[in-house]
Structure formats: structure tokens, C-alpha cells
């Protein structure tokens, strides 16, 4: 993956900056420029909005057959997190044993390495979650 493709998303990856539609107050992550509910009425009204990073596990799985960037961590927990703002995020849960995870568990966002372009390329950082 080229650096610019990742770099342009740093604010969202590092600090969970999404968008809020000023028309319907709906919160979206990752950022999008058109609200799917308000469509044209939302143009120019999708403002940057920082999520608190706190949420609850909505669903989860233990991944045993990962993509190459995650080989060292298998088996690892992937989860769908329902954030306080109502929006859901797919992310890895760290600092938690696979047998301890459950639907409804409270988690918070943390910053971890997501992957790297081999040993000489750029390292990608972004949000993961951990139990509170």
C-alpha cells in the first residue's frame, strides 16, 4: 500500500475523527461527505466529529486464519464495537484473552500498529480496542 493512501486517513485512524451530519445529527465513521439519510440536504454540513472511543462489543469472532500482517497475533479477537455515539466499528480487541470476550463487554479505543510494508517500508498505526 502506498503511503499517501494511508496517510490521508491518519486523523481518523489515530483519533477516531468521523463526521456528524448537522442536518440529522447522525454520526458516521469513517468520514463520508454525504449523509445517507439526508443526502443533498447534508452537502457542506458533514462536520468533523471526534468519537469518544468508548463502546460495547456488539459481536465478535476469534480469527485463526488471518491476513499476513496479523500472523504473529493469531488467534486474535475481531469485534464489531457499538460506540457511544451509536456508530459501529470493526476492530481488533487486544489485552483480552479470547475466552474472556463477550457481547456487551465495555471497551475503549487504543492506538496500535496495524501493519507494515515489510521490514523496510512504512508502519501503519491505527485504532484497536481493549477492555475497560
Amino acid at each position: 500500500m502506498s503511503n499517501p493512501r494511508y496517510w490521508r486517513e491518519n486523523p481518523s485512524r489515530y483519533n477516531l475523527i468521523g463526521r456528524r451530519c448537522e442536518n440529522c445529527k447522525g454520526v458516521f465513521f469513517p468520514p463520508r461527505e454525504i449523509c445517507p439519510k439526508c443526502r443533498r440536504k447534508s452537502l457542506g454540513k458533514m462536520k468533523a466529529y471526534k468519537l469518544t472511543g468508548k463502546g460495547k462489543v456488539y459481536s465478535f469472532t476469534i480469527v485463526h486464519d488471518p491476513m499476513p500482517d496479523f500472523t504473529l497475533m493469531k488467534p486474535y479477537i475481531m469485534a464489531m464495537i457499538e460506540m457511544e455515539e451509536g456508530v459501529r466499528l470493526t476492530g481488533q480487541i487486544v489485552d483480552c484473552e479470547p475466552e474472556k470476550i463477550s457481547i456487551g463487554m465495555h471497551v475503549e479505543a487504543t492506538l496500535r500498529k496495524l501493519g507494515q510494508e515489510g521490514g523496510s517500508g512504512i508502519i501503519r498505526y491505527g485504532y484497536k480496542f481493549r477492555p475497560v
Binding site: E9, P30, Y58, S59, F60, T61, V63, D65, P66, M67, D69, F70, M73, Y76, M78, A79, M80, T90, G91, Q92, I103, L114, G115, R124, G126, Y127, K128
Partner: peptide
């Protein structure tokens, strides 16, 4: 890929989360 795959989600893991919810 950009917002779920990069986070470590495989296609199987997404269906697994659907399965978990269906069971729940």
C-alpha cells in the same frame, strides 16, 4: 478493505460475527 480489512478483518471473520449475532 480500507476500513475493515486493514483492521484485521477477514471475510470469514465478518461472517463469523454475523453467525455470532444470529446465535445471540
Amino acid at each position: 478493505q480500507q476500513w475493515e480489512g486493514i483492521s484485521g478483518a477477514t471475510m470469514a471473520s465478518l461472517f463469523a460475527m454475523m453467525a455470532r449475532r444470529h446465535m445471540h
